Computed example of a mutant assay.
Amino acid sequence: MTAARSTLSFETLIARIGHGLREGARWGLRGILALAIIVMAGMFAVVTAAVGLVIAAVAILLRLTTGGRQQGPQARKTKRPHTEADGITLDAHRTARGWTVE
């Protein structure tokens, strides 16, 4: 028994080619959209890293330029009380707002 052959008409051929082109275009657009999302995410990561580096550089510059205003941990300790001749004891220590004398 032989299989029946169907004739391929010109309209059917054009319809199949058109359908194939549409499917190819859909896959192509999906690929382009996926690549665009990946590129945008990469650009966002690079910009975020650059902003972080700028913030770190500004912090280092501020740390280096403040100089004498920021002192080590030993300067934060309470000074020894000084006794005057009449018996008054003064105790001075540094606070966030400046020196405090008690």
Rank of each mutant, 00 (worst) to 15 (best):
A4E: 04
R5P: 06
S6L: 07
T7V: 10
T7E: 11
L8P: 02
L8N: 05
S9Q: 09
S9V: 05
S9P: 03
F10W: 05
E11K: 12
E11F: 07
I14L: 10
I14M: 06
A15L: 12
R16E: 13
R16T: 08
R16G: 06
I17S: 11
G18Q: 15
G18D: 11
G18E: 13
H19I: 12
G20W: 07
L21P: 01
R22W: 06
R22V: 05
R22M: 10
E23D: 11
E23I: 05
A25R: 12
A25C: 08
R26V: 05
L29T: 02
L29F: 05
R30V: 04
G31A: 11
I32W: 03
L33I: 12
A34I: 02
L35R: 14
L35I: 02
L35S: 07
L35Q: 04
A36I: 01
I37N: 10
I37R: 11
I37A: 14
I38V: 09
V39D: 00
V39W: 00
M40D: 10
A41E: 08
G42I: 00
G42F: 00
M43V: 13
M43F: 12
F44E: 03
F44K: 13
V46A: 12
V46M: 08
V47F: 09
T48G: 15
T48L: 09
A49Y: 06
A50T: 01
A50W: 01
G52F: 07
G52L: 02
G52N: 13
L53Y: 03
I55D: 13
I55M: 13
A56P: 03
A56Y: 02
A56D: 12
A57W: 07
A57I: 04
V58G: 02
A59I: 01
L62R: 01
R63N: 14
R63L: 13
R63I: 04
L64D: 04
T65Y: 04
G67H: 00
G67Q: 08
Q70Y: 10
Q71P: 01
Q74P: 04
A75V: 04
R76C: 07
R76L: 14
K77R: 15
T78V: 15
K79H: 15
H82D: 14
H82G: 14
H82A: 14
H82K: 15
T83S: 04
A85D: 09
D86P: 05
D86A: 04
D86Y: 06
D86F: 01
G87D: 03
I88Y: 03
T89V: 08
T89S: 08
L90I: 13
A92G: 02
A92S: 05
A92Q: 10
H93S: 12
